[in-house]
């Protein structure tokens, strides 16, 4: 269920680092808690994110959840799929429904995030 290659946050984001690029999304646990997702608000390209700062939000019919940057860096790409099909976030949160790609400014930050084993313990899975 939860990929080994990802690192996780307590706020239920995941990040996959490849070279100096990090792909960020929310976890399956997060999408289940939110219920049917109806809208995803993502940052503009080129914005610099600081680790732990909010950079967007995910909305269900009656709730809004902020999304926090798991790592610092500049936004390279946002997932255009989500504007037309927010429901993808319910269907494939670890794959097609990634949120943003970030150019990492400090790759060592990744070490502060949870491993898959730690995250699964954290959510009691």
């Amino acid at each position: 269920m939860y990929p080994e290659t990802f690192r996780y946050t307590k706020e239920h984001e995941w990040v996959l680092v490849e070279g100096d690029t990090g792909t960020v999304g929310i976890t399956d646990h997060a999408q289940k808690e939110l219920g049917d997702i109806v809208y995803v608000d993502l940052p503009k390209l080129g914005v610099t994110l600081a680790k732990g700062a909010t950079f967007g939000s995910v909305e269900s019919v009656k709730a809004v959840s902020d999304i926090y940057a798991p790592i610092s860096g500049e936004v390279l790409e946002t997932n255009s799929l989500l504007a037309a099909a927010p429901e993808k976030l319910n269907e494939d949160p670890h794959g097609a429904a990634w949120l943003v790609k970030i150019k990492l400014s400090d790759p060592s930050e990744i070490e502060q995030l949870m491993t898959v084993a730690e995250y699964q313990t954290y959510i009691g899975a």
Partner: peptide, 9 residues
């Protein structure tokens, strides 16, 4: 679109 509104946000 009630997530814009005060009772949620």
């Amino acid at each position: 679109l009630s997530t814009r509104e005060q009772h949620i946000r």
